[in-house]
């Protein structure tokens, strides 16, 4: 598995590659747009670029 190309890594600049999913417990999950959404989760944000999803996850704009 080569670095930087994983399902949760940023895709090409500007491409809407990811979603933010949520479950009923309030847990959130980043998710690649090309993979079927797992049972029990629904799309809360996106499809959007990775950075936009990351920003949507952190209201205070702190990112790691």
């Amino acid at each position: 598995m080569s670095a930087g190309s994983g399902p949760f890594d940023p895709g090409p600049e500007g491409r809407a590659t990811h979603l933010v999913l949520a479950n009923s417990l309030g847990r959130l999950s980043l998710w690649p747009v090309w993979r079927e959404v797992p049972a029990g989760w629904s799309v809360r944000f996106g499809p959007a670029p990775h950075a936009a999803c990351a920003a949507a996850l952190e209201p205070d704009r702190q990112q790691d």
Partner: peptide
């Protein structure tokens, strides 16, 4: 943000 990108939805387990 970090939590949601490392702890992600499980497509193989029980829902949620």
């Amino acid at each position: 943000g970090l939590t949601a990108s490392r702890f992600v939805a499980d497509p193989f387990g029980r829902p949620e």
